Computed example of a mutant assay.
Amino acid sequence: MMALLAMATVAAAEPPETVRFITCPTYRDTDAGRKSGCWLADDRATGRRYDVSAAPSKPDWNHEILVEGKAAEAPDRCGGIVLDPVRTSVLAGTCTRHMLPAEGYPGNRFSLPKRDVAPMAAARAVPPGPYSTRTFRLFFGFDSAFLMYQYDDYLLDRAITWIRAAKPRTIVVTGYAASGPETVSGRAIAEDEEIARDRAERVTEALVRLGIDRGIISVRTDTRPRPVDDPDADGLVEASRRRVDIEARF
């Protein structure tokens, strides 16, 4: 009995396993108020249905999605195992639109995300010095250079606030692409190498529009990145390869 309890304790202490699969999304039309509908994703290999509503970028029900996430201890309000953290990346493969009625599931009431950007007019607290070389990171969906709302814009806002205060001598923007083929749901997928340049240039343009002198910025790319242990990647290892590094140097 003691041995079984010990095994259960160890199992409970282990971090949740990352699930990663390709599927067509399903929308559940719940009505618990504003933005309460659910996005669901079925892993065809296991038959499990997941709730991916917590993803910062939402699925497009006309296209397949790449799901990457970890199961959370959360109530089932949508009819699936809740993934949080979770990322959903829209792929090129087409899907037939599929919507389910509420079927008794209440859905999720709207709440502000944990990464919520303050209005531009709001004053930012000045980060305290002393300042030294520091790297900020933004993360992207698969084969996408889109800055995700209430995720990448939050990370960019944090970076630009620090850079304005620190006034680094140079800034190196490095775009990464996970171009090495990986097998997901029995399919080989890989990012286009050019997406690394697209990501870096998009972030560079954002920095310039926010007041950084283009003359101090240099752009680089890397198409065989290693994952990074960054808290803003939320422990999603493969997703951490798809990023841009903003390195401020003195």
Rank of each mutant, 00 (worst) to 15 (best):
R242Y: 00
L147C: 01
R169L: 05
F110K: 03
C38N: 01
V237M: 09
S57K: 11
E191C: 08
R115C: 04
D245K: 06
A13I: 05
A248W: 04
F136I: 11
E205A: 13
Q150F: 00
L147R: 10
T94Q: 09
P227Q: 12
Y50R: 05
A239V: 07
F250K: 01
M99K: 14
P130I: 14
T204Y: 07
A3S: 14
E14V: 12
R224K: 14
G69P: 09
R115Y: 13
L207D: 04
A190I: 12
N62Y: 13
L40M: 09
M2W: 08
M7F: 10
E238A: 07
A166N: 04
S53R: 09
V90K: 11
R226Y: 02
R115P: 00
S218T: 15
E64S: 12
R187V: 06
T9K: 13
T9E: 13
K70N: 05
D143G: 09
E17C: 08
E247K: 15
T135P: 02
A45F: 00
D84L: 14
A239Y: 11
P106W: 06
I189H: 04
D84I: 08
Y149D: 10
L207N: 07
E205W: 00
A54M: 08
D192H: 12
L66D: 09
G93D: 03
V203N: 09
G141D: 15
E73V: 07
P85I: 13
D60K: 11
K167E: 10
S111F: 06
M148S: 09
R242H: 00
E73N: 13
L91Y: 01
A102G: 02
